[in-house]
Design a protein around this nucleic acid. Structure first.
Length: 756
DNA sequence: CTTGCAATGACTGAT
DNA sequence: TCATTGCAAG
């Protein structure tokens, strides 16, 4: 029982209280994950069958990490049997088991956000509605939140409040879109993300035998990040826990940041009402951060009205004050922060992985990328578009999806004319019209031209026949050959591989490599199953829609500076944290200024960001930044002034230090933009510390004034001559290298030197 | 049917 | 700024 000795009294109590409902309110950095993992280990040690444990998390990463830690304590073979994962992945698996009860095939497709939006776009067009009034994004959000509140399309239409609301906002036909969307997803054998939870509710509601089975299977239920559950998730958990009531929820209301996704903070605030017997444990000792950081964070969150009272404290050192940095532009912000990181690395012998730059929106990453690249500081960006969302990957996956489920219309539309085979937009539209007319799916129309005539020219019909024959032939192999073999053969015979191979542009090469990486991943998957088993492509496809690239931790990424949104940073910690872009209308986001509750969510987001830091936190803002290509001035975020001044150190690299916080406040309130604009030269002189670390060889070529005919030198290809330029100013160059021939180089990345 | 160019609107957040 | 969409010409 030695592992229990490492817990403090509150943690230990929470671990040992195994029977009956309990709630653990865990302040930031208070050892929440430890409590969860030890609790599971403790249960198993006391004789609970891992098979009877359900542990739900919000990210695959959290699930995997926890599983790993449990395996360390109780061993791999036991840990394997725990049902642990994200809500979406756990219930997707259960749904596949019982899909027939809902009228779905077991190999139903999971539509990601892109697929959902694309389908909605199609529907809006078909209904002849204006896509400016009915913006696919907004419509999707509306449908999504309906589903998260368990409102079906029929219930939506029947709900006069909702319908009135839509009519008032000028979108009276929204319910029609929802109905069509629901129907089309069903016909396509597809569920979107929200369906995975919605349909689980339907399954448990309409099939008491299924409910009974899982209620008795999952005798012990644990939910991580309970403050982020939405109604749909809440109800699933409540139903499953109803018999044994051995439910333990862990969360921190102060870190609830997903209400935009339907998360309902009330779930944690009202837990006691649902389970009067509930025992509450508060973990208030922070083991992560310095006193300064903990207290500063407390001073911020105290401004929120809605919260469960708790006092987070720490025994750690006071540590440094929180630096506040002002810069003139977003680009300068990138440079200054990068320089600071360089300095800290040298002075404190820190590793790259000790640093994180956190921002509100993904779009802010650019200036930091550029600056870090110039200093040769390796970094890794999380979020943005993940590996599985890249076009070429989605294209190939669409072939796989279509092979497994020919009714998957989003996949069909994606690949019916990619690579180009002469089946154009008009043809596809005709097919869709016919499909709607006969009330069948597109695939049915394609394979039954006799039954559902479309009236296509013979040549086009032949092309279609070739296409469907190919897909059918893949489908035959679906459970015959292993995943890798089939994947490879599809990639080759579909023409994707050749299409990308023929594209010799740098982007094309990258795409080709991505496809190879995907195939390598499938190969690994194929080899991961036991000797006597075969992994089929459909097995690979089961979870692929739920993966995000944060799940792929590559070895070469181990020692890199982390760039991510604050949302993505939840649950992580770093010795040095930089929270950037602290400006009004950016953070807090201008979308959040309408109501107190939205603003409070932004404040919690800031709280999350600050509490990621172990040793040092730095805040920064720019007085002007580019947005949609034009320069706008911005004021410092109100959150800066909400921190007690005793925790802050305000200095300003571009103007020397010593500005008082009052000046920050003044500027925020009055909105004085950066008063004096320094020229680039002056600014360079003011750079601090290691500002001018030398790039390894050559300068990023987009900083050079290249002209056709110049002789240049490249670190790999040697000397060459510029023979062509694209863009004004140039972004891409064709360079002839005697050794390797013509090469297309993206100037943003290529390091070139001009030589005589 | 495809291609290439001009016009346009998007930036919260993520399973 | 960037990616997507609409339109005209081949």
């Amino acid at each position: 029982m030695s592992y229990l000795d490492t817990l403090n009294p509150q943690q230990l109590e929470a671990v040992k209280h195994t029977e009956g409902p309990s709630m653990v309110i865990a302040g930031a950095g208070s050892g929440k994950t430890r409590v969860l993992t030890y609790r599971i280990a403790y249960l198993i040690e006391r004789g609970v069958d891992p098979f009877n444990i359900l542990a739900l998390t919000f990210t695959n990463k959290a699930a995997r990490e926890m599983k790993g830690r449990i395996a360390q304590i109780i061993g791999d073979s036991e840990a394997k049997n725990i049902s642990m994962g994200t809500f979406h992945s756990v219930f997707a698996r259960i749904l596949r088991h019982h899909s027939d009860k809902l009228g779905y095939p077991s190999n139903f497709t999971i539509y990601d956000t892109q697929d959902s939006r694309s389908l909605l776009k199609t529907i809006i067009k078909e209904l002849k509605l204006d896509d400016k009034t009915y913006k696919p994004n907004l419509v999707h959000g509306r449908i999504s939140s309906a589903k998260n509140n368990l409102i079906s399309a029929a219930a939506y239409e029947a709900n006069s409040d909702i319908v009135t609301e839509d009519r008032m906002s000028g979108k009276p036909r929204l319910f029609e879109i929802y109905k069509a969307y629901e129907k089309r997803c069903f016909m396509a054998g597809a569920m979107d993300f929200d369906d995975l939870l919605f349909k689980t509710n339907v399954l448990l509601r309409d099939h008491p035998d299924v409910l009974h089975f899982y209620q008795h299977r999952f005798r012990y239920i644990l939910v991580d990040e309970y403050q982020d559950t939405n109604y749909s998730q809440y109800l699933i958990v409540k139903k499953l826990a109803d018999v044994f009531q051995n439910i333990c929820v862990v969360g921190d209301d102060a870190q609830s940041i997903y209400s935009f996704r339907g998360a309902n903070i009330e779930n944690i605030l009202n837990f006691k009402n649902d389970y009067p017997e509930c025992v509450t444990f508060k973990l208030e000792q922070n083991y992560r951060s310095t006193k300064t950081i903990v207290n500063a964070a407390n001073s911020i969150i105290a401004k929120n009205k809605d919260q469960i009272h708790k006092t987070v404290w720490t025994d750690n050192d006071s540590g440094n004050k929180i630096k506040v940095i002002r810069t003139l532009t977003d680009n300068e912000e990138g440079k200054v922060i990068s320089n600071l990181i360089y300095e800290l690395k040298v002075n404190e012998q820190a590793a790259n992985a000790d640093f994180a730059i956190l921002y509100r929106t993904n779009a802010q990453s650019r200036s930091f990328e550029e600056a870090l690249r110039k200093l040769n500081l390796p970094y890794k960006i999380y979020g943005g578009l993940s590996f599985y969302q890249r076009k070429e990957i989605k294209d190939l996956l669409a072939y796989f999806r279509l092979t497994a489920n020919p009714n998957d219309e989003e996949a069909l539309k994606r690949v019916i004319n990619y690579p180009k085979r002469g089946i154009g937009k008009t043809t596809v539209e005709k097919i869709i019209v016919a499909a709607n007319q006969y009330e069948v799916g597109m695939w049915d129309v394609l394979i039954n031209p006799g039954k559902y005539p479309v009236g296509l020219p013979g040549a086009t019909q032949n092309k279609i026949n070739t296409f469907i024959t190919a897909i059918k032939s893949y489908a035959v192999d679906l459970e015959k050959v292993d995943a890798y073999e089939l994947a490879q053969s599809i990639a080759r015979s579909s023409g994707i591989l050749k299409d990308l191979y023929d594209d010799k542009s740098p982007e094309g090469v990258a795409r080709y490599e991505n496809i190879q990486a995907l195939l390598a991943g499938i190969k690994e998957f194929t080899e991961s199953v036991g000797e006597n088993e075969t992994a089929y492509l459909s097995d690979f496809m089961v979870d692929v829609a739920l993966l995000t690239d944060a799940d792929e931790e590559k070895e070469e990424d181990l020692d890199k500076i982390t760039l991510m949104t604050i949302h993505a940073s939840k649950g992580l910690e770093f010795p040095y944290v930089f929270i950037v872009g602290l400006e009004e209308n950016l953070f807090p986001s201008q979308m959040a200024l309408n109501s107190r509750s939205e603003l409070e969510e932004e404040r919690r987001l800031f709280y999350v960001a600050l509490t990621r830091a172990e040793k040092k936190a730095t805040l920064s803002y720019a007085t002007s930044r580019y947005r949609w290509g034009n320069l706008i001035t911005s004021e410092p975020s109100r959150f800066i002034e909400e921190i007690d001044t005793e925790f802050l150190e305000v200095n300003n690299p571009t103007r020397g230090s010593g500005r008082s916080l009052n000046q920050v406040n003044l500027e925020r309130k009055v909105g004085i933009p950066g008063k004096k604009v320094f020229s680039d030269k002056q600014r360079k002189l003011k750079k601090i510390g290691a500002a001018d670390a030398k790039p390894k060889s050559g300068t990023p070529a987009n900083k050079l004034d290249l002209k056709v005919g110049y002789n240049v030198k490249h670190e790999h290809f040697g000397k060459g001559k510029v023979v062509g330029l694209e863009g004004d100013p140039p972004v891409k160059a064709t360079v002839f290298f005697p050794k390797v021939g013509n090469k297309q180089l993206l100037l943003k990345f290529a390091r070139l030197e001009i030589v005589e």
